[in-house]
Design a protein around this nucleic acid. Structure first.
Lengths: 237, 237
DNA sequence: TGCAATCCAATTGTATACAAAACTGAATAC
DNA sequence: GTATTCAGTTTTGTATACAATTGGATTGCA
């Protein structure tokens, strides 16, 4: 069983036990856009749905807030995070800084087994699209990037990339232009080809342009920030 | 009151209320090397010391584990983290990737107020050394780097740097060579001078060499990993 | 009718009680 | 003498009970 199957949540859980299951389940739902940004995650609701106590629910929500998939507002509850346009730009600037170089490192450490994993990933993406499950395809697409960072064998940076990919999923949910088609197929395939040839320069360049493509499919023009309540601005704490 | 005074813990707390106070206090103690890597942080002990319930203690410990200052072992408790040599190398590779470029960005956004903050930081470092409090000096020194990342106004990357600096403090506690003197004074001063002149190239270069200096003062030769118990290797979970 | 103050239901924050797991050390078997 | 087992103690994991806060509906008043 490979890592893909072992970690369907993306985010390496930072909690253990029942809370980890809950975290995984919520994380996956958010990544697949079944839970939309802004959705309230009530503790009682979750505790009933998953059959655990609020103690466990709170641990999972706190963990999710640490990876910024969830926003905790004191005394008000947990909500699926809504990154602002400014944050969206930052996320992709950070990805542009980290991922191309990581792709190069991955090239140097590539193995046959790793290549096979990446290809099975792409196949799974295609299958998800064919089956009319764009949410799952999107999640797998993010996981592809994470897999590369793990192959590069830089766990610290991989951890950062996990967070950035997670946040990217929320950003895509909020700011994706309808017109633009999501065709990661070719980009990911081109990356794998570069890996196979051991061409680090090409891998780095492909990753760079792939990220640029994603950003250019987003509508990040300045618009009034997602409703900010007076409370958020003025609250003493 | 500037940010320095507001956030003496380094780590922007990801929890609120009493748990945040506890997190800040523990974080500061770890940064100042009053709490050493490997120290057990018992829940009952902390709850008695701080006069809060274990519920709050657990929230703080979980938050600290998310920034990797604390390691949680299921059913065994919380310990101040002990990064391995391998992790230490990764952390400084990541810093080398992020911080020089961030220093350049900071140069572009530098203001008089920000410069003043950085200088008051250096002054505080000197004072701490003069008063024979090397722990506090070390903490302030880390905070200097974080302040730069905030000036660069890239909060996403600043968050990563916060984590890396925090982890660096643990690494220094574990692997610092006795012989080498900690003389960040000059490095930090040189950085500020570059900022003052608006010389982005110089700031980037200074940051790069500063980080190299730190790493070269560490003893990261391969030694038997910090005692790994059989349990850690063989435990089913 | 419009506005404001107030009360009430719902939800989160914290403490505590109980369950489960792990460590300790003494007794026992070899 | 060494290793092992097992009970007791300690510590962590989870559930539940209670307190505090919020948000909205209701009521009172101009």
């Amino acid at each position: 069983m490979n890592r893909i199957a072992e970690n369907p949540a993306f985010i390496t859980p930072t909690v253990t036990g029942p809370a980890a299951k809950l975290m995984t389940s919520l994380s996956q739902a958010i990544h697949e856009h079944r839970l939309k940004p802004g959705t309230k995650l009530g503790e009682d609701d979750l505790s009933e749905i998953y059959g655990v106590s609020r103690t466990v629910v709170r641990a999972a929500l706190q963990a999710l807030s640490h990876v910024q998939l969830v926003e905790l507002k004191r005394n008000r509850g947990a909500f699926v995070a809504k990154p602002t346009i400014r944050e969206a730009r930052e996320v992709f600037e950070a990805r542009a800084l980290l991922e191309p170089r990581t792709a190069r490192s991955a090239t140097e450490r590539m193995t046959d087994a790793a290549l096979a994993r990446l290809e099975s990933h792409i196949a799974a993406e295609h299958q998800a699209i064919a089956e009319g499950e764009p949410g799952r395809a999107l999640r797998l697409s993010g996981q592809f990037h994470i897999e590369i960072s793990h192959i590069a064998d830089q766990e610290t940076i991989a951890g950062f990339i996990e967070r950035l990919v997670a946040r990217s999923s929320l950003i895509i949910a909020l700011y994706w232009k309808r017109e633009s088609a999501l065709c990661e197929k070719h980009a990911h395939h081109a990356l794998v080809e570069a890996f196979r040839r051991g061409d680090g320069d090409e891998a780095e360049a492909q990753m760079k342009s792939h990220l640029i493509d994603i950003v250019s499919a987003l509508d990040l023009r300045d618009t009034p920030e997602p409703e900010v309540s007076l409370r958020d601005i003025l609250a003493p704490e």
